[in-house]
Amino acid sequence: MTEESNLEKVLKSGKFAVTAELGPPKNGDAKVVREKAKQLKGAADAVNITDCQTAIVRMSSIAAGVIAMEEGIEPVIQMTCRDRNRIAIQSDLLGAWGLGARNLLCLTGDHQKFGNHPQSKNVFDLDSMQLLDLARNLRDAKKFQCGEEIEGEEPRFFIGAAENPFADPFEYRAPRLAKKLAAGAQFIQTQIVYNMDKFTKWMEAVRQLGLDKKIYILPGVTPLKSAGMARYMQKNVPGLDVPDEYIERLKGADDQQKEGINIAVDIINQVRGIEGVAGVHVMAIEWESAVPTIVERAGLR
């Protein structure tokens, strides 16, 4: 038990948790972070601060996380293995802890090919599984990855990971969650759920392995801003499986944004009914202002 994270307290209490996401700007303007933080404040128990998501250079997740904290947000620092080796990762984790961050999300990271520096050399010294194990050992064994003792204060993060129930091989996705749990993950945020059948099936497999009792599962929910965005995601994001039904609903709506929020609320209500779901992770991509409405409409605040 780390007990220093509010998110952990909320999840332990059995309350249905809400996490949100804040994408740092592609510049050095702290005001952008503050503005987004203000929009999210009160709407979530903790907010993920993305780490150069889709390999696009943005303000660092730790720096943006500290700015968000100044606005009263509890950050979940996202850390990927793409850009840092084990030395840089541990250094950043010490720094993030020292600056007051209490939650950590361990990711492998999107390949640099998708970003704005596809010519760069990737690192991937560790994978997400090994990063989880590393973060847990910093905390529980008070040891660096090399085995050396940490003298003085150790980072004691509440540790999370991601899982994509829609990726292949599908039958490996629940066992992979078990592996993440064993490596140190305490909570899981999933890829955006649109394909409810597949998500339900994955949750069945998760429950069969008894994992829902040992790890907090927060399915990802993303409001669709327009029929265009929905179609784009359907076509271009492999595995996301945005159903035609949602696209039709958006197309038929007078106010597509409003309908997008309606759909998100529907999805939250559906996942909430699935046994073993501990909360939701609401990712309103470049649309942070939608989160309070969604959360309120879903009756979560």
């Binding site: 492998t108 599984m129 090994q130 990726a167």
Partner: peptide, 28 residues
């Protein structure tokens, strides 16, 4: 593409790597 050592990343889809439809996912 990510020298994963503990199984496939979340980008593995239909046997292909997230990086390209022309590259098999090694972990699949």
């Amino acid at each position: 593409a990510k020298t994963m050592l503990n199984g496939p990343c979340g980008g593995s889809q239909n046997g292909k790597c997230e990086v390209s439809k022309d590259i098999d996912c090694a972990w699949q």
